[in-house]
Design a protein around this nucleic acid. Structure first.
Lengths: 358, 358
DNA sequence: TTGTATGCGTTATCAG
DNA sequence: CTGATAACGCATACAA
């Protein structure tokens, strides 16, 4: 007794009608008599008839579903973005299929191919850290698969992209630290080639540059495999803390890195912000509950998801090919939480007025 | 230039073969010559041929995909459970479709119907808080849709269920609080009718009963809509804090309630654990970083997801109907984090030796 | 060893 | 107004 949903054929048989009549009645076609329509509709409702989406997809050559590719859903940024995506998709009659790459290149390819080989109409992609070879995605795009990137976007593929303003997020955060008198701010990213990290690094260096402050390359570290595991952040921080000229602050450039920094400082009984200051990108909704009340850079994840989805659906539902692609950048928000730590030693020179933002 | 994947027909045409020959060659059928196979295989590989899963599903009447229904993925317990589900599903060649109910009854029905109407082979369900009427699920199950429940399970439907040992989790946590000298422990749940909450309440009351301690009904509160929003927890806590005999501890019985309690105490500058103690169910992976180092009850979310999936796949892949259904209960873990608070006032009578666990 | 015909559930086209 | 038939992509029973 396998689950066998009722089909249009069953209805036709039961009612002594032809398949096409039933089909048209259900679609409320004008060429069917009211009585027949009623009859069919009522019976269909009674039997809980639902059209088989598989058959429909086969016929219409589309599934009304969108594929999502993210590194992991257990990440506040991504789960919020997914909620944004779902809110729009649902509204426009699409379902979404979420896949996770765990920052793993092979899984990314596997997921994307799975999704692409007919099961979704379009793709919403945030690249994994490991991804450097984009040829498979590029091929897919060239062959006509609609895709929109968000957050972690590639340069090589010409399509819509929605990101947060990483440059100014990092710029503001660095400025905040410099304003507070910190002088050796470490930059911690997850993958040097990732668009978001490059932009954040630019914001970080420009904040220094605009004050004529040097940037010490030794203070720039990466967790090349995405920092999903604590050990990676630990390695990077160990190196930083071993420097003869230690950092007095850290700018953590990913959700997980932010919490892993906290974890590291916690387990090494390094006090934040008394021993070292920390500002990080984080979309956790309870950062104010964390032990050292943390200043964070928060990204508009939900809105990013929404806008990416709108752009994708526009592509899907526009009759003619899209010619111009947008790159949207939504403002990130620096949330400054006053720490209980005493103000840092006065900087040697008074901080210069920061130059205008990019 | 819409995305048009290559089909078996295209290959047949290009190679001057029949569709069925190509089909068989690709399936490596024994009745096809090596040369033809090679020819077809090579060409297919070159053209990135992938069978259309939609067509396959239509034919085989199954999709090799599983539907997941949870209240929200931005919840550590569920995202961990989903990871467990995916790990098994992927291993056995299934993809998963995740849907969220936002604790909303209508969305639950909508999601389940969407999934059921042919797009998945089976369902992994954790009920929403609002769900009281299970008839649609029961109907679906009776009509043969394989389903396994996890975490929040119904009584009315006879199928596999995988939960954590809520009773002993709550029992141990309550005991821990009683051992520490707390005497008025509030119980905070999200929905009184939910299986997990009833079990946790039983553990809570039994812990009292086994010491011949009374349970004050006024200390038992619910956030009936699932406590997704802070205001609900706030209302419940406001009522508790207005009692003439205030609680000296809180047992928070859901991930979100635990953090919302913290948030409440934080914003009301109520010190944990000096003013009030808190133990909560939580699968957040950074509870040790939270401001008052919190004792928590952690559920084996990943394993629950895995086992539920295994049971579901067993149903799907067994030829004959399953007759006996399992209800598995996996141990929850009480993680005691020593707080910096001074020990509570000595209880009036020395705590009785707790009775054996259920 | 290969080709032809059928059906999975649906809609669209064409006849009645 | 209603019914028969083809097609979507694939696998397979049946022919050759």
């Amino acid at each position: 007794m396998k689950y066998e949903p009722i089909t249009i054929k069953d209805i036709a048989q039961a009612l002594g009608l032809s398949i096409s009549t039933v089909s048209r009645a259900l679609r409320d076609s004008y060429e069917i008599s009211q009585e027949t329509k009623q009859l069919v509709m009522d019976y269909a409702a009674k039997m809980h008839y639902r059209p088989n989406p598989i058959a429909l997809s086969l016929k219409e050559r589309r599934t009304r579903s969108l594929g999502i590719v993210v590194s992991e859903i257990a990440n506040s940024f991504f789960s919020q973005a997914i909620n944004g995506i779902e809110s729009i998709a649902r509204e426009r009659g699409y379902t979404v299929i979420i896949t996770q790459t765990a920052e793993n290149k092979e899984r990314e390819i596997e997921n994307i191919n799975d999704l692409a080989s007919r099961s979704v109409d379009g793709l919403l992609v945030s690249l994994s850290c490991e991804t450097t070879d984009l040829s498979y995605l590029k091929t897919l795009h060239d062959r006509g698969m609609p895709m929109v990137f968000f957050d972690r976007v590639p340069e090589e593929i010409n399509t819509h992209k929605v990101i947060s303003d990483n440059y100014n997020g990092a710029y503001d955060a660095t400025n905040h630290l410099l304003d507070s008198g910190y002088q050796r701010i470490a930059f911690l990213g997850n993958a040097a080639h990732l668009s978001i990290i490059r932009e954040r690094l630019a914001g970080y260096t420009d904040a220094h540059r605009h004050r004529q402050l040097p940037v010490d390359e030794a203070l720039i570290k990466y967790a090349e495999h995405g920092g999903l595991i604590y050990a990676e952040a630990e390695d990077a921080l160990n190196e930083l803390m071993k420097l003869r000229k230690k950092p007095d602050a850290v700018l953590a450039c990913a959700d997980k890195l932010t919490t892993n920094c906290l974890r590291y400082f916690h387990s090494h009984t390094i006090s934040v912000p008394d021993d070292i200051a920390l500002v990080g990108f984080s979309n956790l909704d309870l950062t104010e509950l964390l032990k050292p009340s943390l200043s964070v850079i928060r990204q508009p994840a939900f809105e990013i998801g929404q806008q990416a989805t709108e752009l994708l659906l526009n592509i899907l539902e526009s009759k003619r090919p899209v010619r111009s692609f947008e790159q949207r950048s939504l403002p990130a928000q620096l949330i400054i939480r006053e720490t209980s730590g005493q103000p840092k030693p006065v900087p040697k020179k008074a901080p210069a007025k920061p130059a205008a933002r990019r």
